Amino acid sequence: MKFNSNNLKIHKLNLEDSLEKFDFDCGDEDLNNFLFIDSFKYIQNNLSIIYLIFFQEELVGYFSLSSDAIKIKTLEIKHGFYPAVKIGRLAVNKKYQNQGIGSFIIKSAISIILRTRNDIWIRFLSIDAYNDNKVIHFYSKFEFETLLKIKNRRNIPMYLDINMLR
């Protein structure tokens, strides 16, 4: 079953929110711990903005955005690092995986960046994808490119050139 994006709601997590009532498990302990243990610290220290994704009243996913800079040598203008926004964490509840919520999250992150890029220049969307063919293929469907691929590395840096979305 694919979710109709009209049935999904985005909520920006803030310090007054509570996550205690939600039964969320994405199957990855690190991503679960980030949400329930670290997310408020990241908000409090201005390190990330976290967005929660709801279907009705159930928490079905989340993602975080933070500032980043990436080095790319193929652009016409030679610049040390280029401004980017990083999707630091992205997770979907196990009960709702493979139903289009991850795609909704990527499209939502892109939409947020496109809305803000006129106020602060952003050239790229970056992500450190798990070094797994299925994960890399998922991001590749959205035109993310591999920045650097090292065989035994846990994460693979990938990027999307926002200018290509115009």
Rank of each mutant, 00 (worst) to 15 (best):
residue 77 I to C: 11
residue 69 A to N: 05
residue 106 I to S: 14
residue 98 N to R: 15
residue 86 K to Q: 15
residue 103 S to V: 05
residue 109 A to R: 15
residue 91 A to M: 08
residue 76 E to G: 09
residue 102 G to L: 08
residue 111 S to C: 08
residue 114 L to H: 00
residue 88 G to V: 03
residue 104 F to C: 08
residue 102 G to D: 07
residue 70 I to S: 13
residue 105 I to C: 05
residue 96 Y to M: 07
residue 91 A to E: 02
residue 66 S to I: 06
residue 84 A to S: 13
residue 107 K to Y: 00
residue 96 Y to I: 02
residue 69 A to L: 11
residue 100 G to Y: 01
residue 82 Y to E: 11
residue 83 P to D: 00
residue 80 G to R: 11
residue 81 F to N: 12
residue 96 Y to P: 09
residue 105 I to D: 11
residue 106 I to A: 11
residue 90 L to W: 01
residue 67 S to C: 11
residue 99 Q to A: 13
residue 92 V to F: 07
residue 72 I to N: 13
residue 69 A to S: 12
residue 73 K to I: 04
residue 73 K to C: 05
residue 80 G to P: 06
residue 92 V to G: 09
residue 77 I to N: 12
residue 110 I to T: 05
residue 97 Q to N: 09
residue 105 I to T: 03
residue 87 I to M: 15
residue 85 V to W: 03
residue 107 K to H: 00
residue 86 K to Y: 00
residue 84 A to H: 01
residue 69 A to I: 03
residue 69 A to W: 01
residue 82 Y to H: 08
residue 88 G to P: 04
residue 111 S to V: 05
residue 68 D to G: 06
residue 69 A to M: 09
residue 71 K to I: 14
residue 99 Q to R: 10
residue 109 A to L: 09
residue 87 I to W: 02
residue 81 F to L: 09
residue 78 K to Q: 08
residue 109 A to W: 06
residue 93 N to K: 08
residue 107 K to R: 14
residue 71 K to Y: 15
residue 82 Y to M: 12
residue 84 A to C: 06
residue 70 I to D: 05
residue 68 D to A: 08
residue 105 I to S: 13
residue 79 H to P: 00
residue 108 S to G: 04
residue 111 S to F: 10
residue 64 S to T: 07
residue 102 G to W: 03
residue 71 K to G: 10
residue 83 P to M: 07
residue 90 L to N: 06
residue 88 G to M: 01
residue 82 Y to N: 09
residue 96 Y to K: 08
residue 65 L to A: 13
residue 104 F to D: 04
residue 80 G to I: 08
residue 72 I to Q: 07
residue 108 S to K: 12
residue 111 S to N: 12
residue 83 P to L: 09
residue 80 G to V: 03
residue 69 A to Q: 07
residue 65 L to P: 10
residue 99 Q to W: 03
residue 76 E to A: 14
residue 71 K to H: 10
residue 78 K to R: 12
residue 76 E to C: 13
residue 85 V to C: 13
residue 110 I to E: 07
residue 85 V to A: 06
residue 99 Q to P: 05
residue 80 G to C: 10
residue 74 T to F: 15
residue 66 S to R: 14
residue 94 K to L: 12
residue 114 L to K: 13
residue 91 A to R: 00
residue 96 Y to L: 04
residue 66 S to L: 15
residue 92 V to T: 11
residue 103 S to A: 12
residue 110 I to S: 04
residue 98 N to A: 13
residue 72 I to R: 15
residue 92 V to N: 10
residue 93 N to D: 10
residue 88 G to Y: 01
residue 110 I to R: 10
residue 114 L to Y: 01
residue 68 D to F: 02
residue 112 I to W: 00
residue 64 S to P: 03
residue 92 V to L: 06
residue 76 E to D: 14
residue 77 I to M: 15
residue 90 L to Y: 04
residue 98 N to M: 14
residue 112 I to M: 05
residue 92 V to D: 11
residue 77 I to F: 06
residue 83 P to Q: 05
residue 79 H to R: 05
residue 85 V to M: 11
residue 85 V to Q: 13
residue 88 G to T: 00
residue 106 I to F: 02
residue 78 K to N: 15
residue 87 I to F: 11
residue 86 K to S: 10
residue 104 F to G: 04
residue 70 I to H: 13
residue 113 I to D: 03
residue 89 R to G: 02
residue 73 K to Y: 01
residue 108 S to F: 02
residue 69 A to Y: 01
residue 99 Q to L: 13
residue 95 K to R: 14
residue 105 I to Q: 07
residue 105 I to L: 15
residue 73 K to P: 01
residue 111 S to T: 03
residue 76 E to S: 09
residue 107 K to F: 01
residue 81 F to I: 05
residue 112 I to A: 03
residue 111 S to K: 09
